[in-house]
């Protein structure tokens, strides 16, 4: 089967079987996710992408469900102003880049606060623990994330 979709802002056509996951097809048909090793259970965060603005694990999304929809991958997100802002805040807090989890964490946390702009402390900590991390960067991520939430709140207040 062939499907049309918008991938990181560009119209593309992907080909694959109906029971193939979006992750497998993107890895085979595009330059994306080339180094990602995914748990295939939706828990590791390495295959997460935005499907119509909602974070989903692409390893559990059948190819046919992506038809006529908009997808933003972590690679696409890396070129956005939101990513640059979050990354600069994390750099200021002293984040040491981890090849295993940093990209997945930044993508996940940004998607989370776009969906839930005013999380409680408990919810924020839960969101931080949702992507497995062994590098110990969670305290830095939490500080950066709290600053990002404040900045976005101010931005929303100015717009209104």
């Amino acid at each position: 089967m062939k499907i049309n979709l918008i991938l990181n802002g560009e119209d593309v056509t992907l080909a694959g079987d109906s029971d193939e996951s979006l992750f497998e097809v993107l890895k085979r048909e595009t330059p994306l996710f080339q180094t990602a090793v995914c748990c295939q259970k939706g828990t590791c965060g390495r295959c997460h992408l935005l499907l119509d603005g909602r974070e989903v694990p692409s390893c559990l999304v059948p190819l046919y469900q992506a038809r006529q929809r908009e997808i933003i991958t972590p690679e696409g997100f890396a070129h956005t102003d939101d990513h640059k802002l979050f990354r600069s805040l994390l750099d200021e807090e002293g984040l040491v880049f981890c090849t295993q989890c940093t990209d997945a964490q930044i993508f996940h946390l940004n998607a989370y606060i776009e969906q839930f702009p005013n999380p409680s402390d408990e919810e924020l900590r839960a969101a931080l623990s949702e992507i497995p991390c062994r590098c110990g960067s969670r305290p830095v991520l939490e500080k950066g994330l709290r600053r990002l939430i404040e900045i976005k709140e101010v931005g929303r207040a100015i717009r209104h």
Partner: peptide, 11 residues
């Protein structure tokens, strides 16, 4: 909130 992670709950 106790089910999976944000991405899994969206699906």
């Amino acid at each position: 909130l106790g089910i999976g992670n944000n991405a899994l709950r969206n699906l």
